[in-house]
């Protein structure tokens, strides 16, 4: 240790760093800290690993006790997830066995043979997933468009009572879903919006609007007004200036906002549970009700969850730099 104070570190320092941080002790603590963080991250992700594992197990592997860590992966869970099946008749089994012997058996047939069930059509889950995609996609688009316009107005114009209005918009996001669900349920029943795509799209649009306005206002505030003013002086109309100057510069902010709206609409459960029953039901409540039906097909549930989570994880990873402002309503800059 005394050596360090006399001779300094073994390698010359070519970065901006405080003297005490280059001491061997600091360097050791720093590496130790990195190892601890990595270990913690792995520990936290264990449940997700296990779920991913379960998705590739067979029905019997899932329920083996103690749980299996080494197993032969199959796509059974995914097939079960996406299909409706029926018990195969004995006659059909012989036919499939014959085909298996001659070697021309498709993936689905092979699974059918192995599990003793035959695919009769696509499962509900496919419809639910389609509903989720439509509702989350369209509502995100609407929230971002409406949110952008409102955010632009709040950012650039002298809106009377601006602070109060912005607070009102934020407060709607803090409102517990349970408080508004009952009247919304009644309102939707009256208006015929119950269990319709349009009803859910409007609902998610409104719920995301407050976030979209706050986030986008933060991003637009950072675009200097001088560019637009120059364009206005040059004879552009306000709308042209927005389209050609503000919009391109706000693109990253718009992308980040869209992701947050998408994640919310994609994951939302409470409203979907209470305001849809069949036609417009999305994936989250349907994954939850899978439990109720017949024998619990855990691998199918895990497969469904995994398939449902992967897009979110990818999106989160791609836009990790914007996460911060999203969760804090843009209150925190970088």
């Amino acid at each position: 240790m005394s050596d360090f104070y006399e001779t300094g570190p073994s390698k010359p320092v070519t970065e901006s760093i405080r003297v005490d941080k280059v001491s061997p002790r600091s360097r050791r603590i720093h590496s130790l800290r990195a190892i601890v963080v990595i270990a913690l991250a792995i520990f936290l992700l264990i449940p997700i690993f296990i779920m991913a594992m379960t998705a590739f197990k067979t029905r019997s592997d899932v329920v083996s006790s103690p749980p299996k860590t080494v197993f032969e992966p199959t796509l059974e869970g995914f097939v079960f997830l996406f299909t409706e099946r029926a018990i195969i008749t004995p006659g059909r089994i012989t036919k499939l066995q014959e085909a298996a012997e001659s070697g021309d058996l498709g993936l689905f047939d092979r699974i059918a043979l192995k599990s003793g069930q035959e695919i009769t059509g696509p499962s509900d889950y496919v419809t639910r997933l389609k509903n989720s995609l439509i509702i989350a996609g369209v509502s995100t688009l609407l929230s971002v468009i409406l949110g952008f316009f409102a955010a632009y107005a709040f950012s650039r114009f002298n809106v009377p009572g601006k602070d109060d209005l912005m607070f009102f918009i934020l407060s709607t996001r803090m409102l517990p879903a349970v408080v508004v669900t009952i009247p919304l349920f009644l309102m939707y029943r009256q208006l015929g919006l119950h269990d319709t795509h349009i009803g859910m799209i409007l609902l998610y649009t409104v719920f995301n609007l407050s976030l979209a306005v706050w986030l986008l206002k933060g991003f637009i505030d950072e675009i200097p007004t001088e560019y637009e003013e120059a364009a206005l002086v040059d004879g552009y109309t306000r709308m042209q200036a927005i389209r050609k100057i503000v919009l391109p510069q706000a693109m990253t902010g718009i992308a980040a906002t869209a992701v947050f709206c998408l994640i919310f609409a994609w994951n939302e459960y409470a409203f979907a549970l209470m305001l849809t029953s069949n036609t417009a039901r999305t994936a989250p409540p349907s994954i939850a009700t899978m439990l109720g039906r017949g024998g619990i097909e855990w691998s199918a549930i895990a497969a469904g969850s995994l398939g449902f989570l992967i897009p979110v994880v990818i999106v989160v990873f791609l836009l990790r730099d914007y996460l911060l402002r999203g969760v804090t309503f843009g209150a925190v800059r970088k």
Partner: peptide, 16 residues
């Protein structure tokens, strides 16, 4: 000392 030197010596009152 807020910045570590790459090389050289700094003496304060003759102390390294």
């Amino acid at each position: 000392g807020l910045e570590a030197v790459t090389s050289g010596t700094i003496l304060l009152d003759g102390r390294n």
